[in-house]
Design a protein around this nucleic acid. Sequence first.
RNA 1: GGCCCCGUGGCGCAACUGAAUAGCGCAUCAGAUUUCGGCUCUGAGGGUUACAGGUUUGAAUCCUGUCGGGGUCACCA
Length: 589
Amino acid sequence: MVQNILDSIVKEGIKSIYKIDLEKVEFQETRKDFEGDITIVVFPLLKQIKGNPVEIANQIGSYVKEHADIVTGFNVVKGFLNLVITDSYYVDYFNEVSDFIDFGKVKEKSGAMMVEYSSPNTNKPLHLGHIRNNLLGYSVAEILSASGKKVYKTQIINDRGIHICKSMIAWLKYGEGKTPESTGLKGDKLVGNYYVKFDQEYKKEIGNLVAEGKSEEEAKKQAPILLEAQEMLLKWEAGDQETVSLWKKMNEWVYKGFDQSYKELGVDFDTNYFESNTYLLGKEVVAEGLKKGVFYKKEDGSVWIDLTDEGLDEKIVLRADGTAVYMTQDIGTAIQRLKDFPDIEGLVYTVGNEQDYHFKVLFLILKKMGFEWAQNLHHLSYGMVDLPEGKMKSREGTVVDADDLMSEMTRTAGEISEELGKLEGYTALEKQGLYKIIGLGALKYFILKVDPKKRILFDPKESIDFNGNTGPFIQYTYARIQSILRKANFVNKERIGVDTLHPKEKELLKLLQTYPVIIQNAAENLSPALVANFTYELVKSYNSFYQSVPIFGAAKEADKVLRVQLSYAVSCVIKSSFKLLGIEVPERM
RNA sequence: GGCCCCGUGGCGCAACUGAAUAGCGCAUCAGAUUUCGGCUCUGAGGGUUACAGGUUUGAAUCCUGUCGGGGUCACCA
């Protein structure tokens, strides 16, 4: 990087001129409306060097121009020292990259992380909210991996509890033995239908009870179908064979359905954890913590942690009857994961921001328990996806189903491509694959370009754009470059041999150079949005270059080589950055 | 009510974590192809960064308060 080269030279300069050891030089990219490539901000130096900022900037500028080969000129505006970097620096940089396919990625892994995402309940299908979760988690895993971590992708499947019992009861009462095979429905959809059915019956029964003179509150607790579900949960915990085998059967249906959705969405997992296996894990740990004095027991036997010193509340970690709560299980699961994968240094939990408090407490508990890795726990907290009518509610049928949305996107992409595409010679099957790439690209980019912590408003009627700052816009640019490379009979990356660059070429080279930094930044911030926005910048810059500079009509052969090579490099980085987002790119579209 | 997050042109998003005249897309208007894919490019209009104070040479960014939106305060997960 230019910064690294200049940093020491600037420090030397300041030492020789002012006899001062500087800790940090503040660089920033030069704004477009000024001449120069990199800017040193002089103001922060004024604390150590007394004087006029413009004068100081001029003195440093002269020194740097004198002593740094890569600096060919400078100008000073107010307290900003704008340095002009030689074209040859950027040409050399380009030539040093042996290939752009893996450019920016750190290959030698140091340390490992586990990323948890998705983690659905097994009583209903995936919806738009899960899509955001999956895309974020998957992408962050890819980004961490590119930044030099070994990464394990995982999820915890909430396969037990009252919710699945509700679906089971409703299926027993109204299912008539229907299966995914007999109905042709995806398993998760089938089971989800009975979850909805349960709720309908439940409401009906409440209505009846209220009509009989019970209060609303009483009715909610006494509705027979709810009692049946609760009874079933008890049976399940007691290991009742019939219940357990039904539970297994219905969960299997759901997993098959999920697998299909995950495959369609393009995400995967290295290992799964099931709540039915882990919900007891935390108990031992709690007992241990009780001995250590991290927790305390109340008279009724329930176990708590007092976090009032940290500005939080008291929090229960074990029920009076000795059964585990959500927190118990999460404590146990975290510890189990570190046992299973001893090389991991930390965990990333991709979970909506409604659980901010839960994770704050969880991390604090683990820290208090004395686990060193507790400081490497991150809650990748993201905002809800809202519809124009407000929150999605599965029971009220206002959810945007994940499968429906994906196929809708693919269909729309198909309509647009039929009209505009250049797909001579593509078979129907190839076309279908392409529409999927474009449709899902649009969806994924739409969601990932937004800062995770912000909420997203999704209006199904307005659908998703295909122009402007969108996935297909970027895919289009990629496809167009491929067309150029085909025409140029491009084979391999080769050295470029020019010594002056067109401003648009230089701009592109500058941007390419920042890609490795972007990856590190995105990893630190757990933010795919940074990668998305960078890619967009790059593509815009390339399109502008494309428009103002002829490639095949270049005056000199060396220029043509440069421009073809540059196009290739840009396409590699588009492909690679999109891969970090879990988005594919098409050869044509 | 306590605590947490958010508030940037009509709409959707940026701003390298405190720096120059707050950028971009959509929409609106005006232009560009004897040329490599026009799903492209160039330009114009549109802002007191919710509001009021404060810190700082410098604030969309940090602090305090107000208003508005969301979340959370379960022996649910």
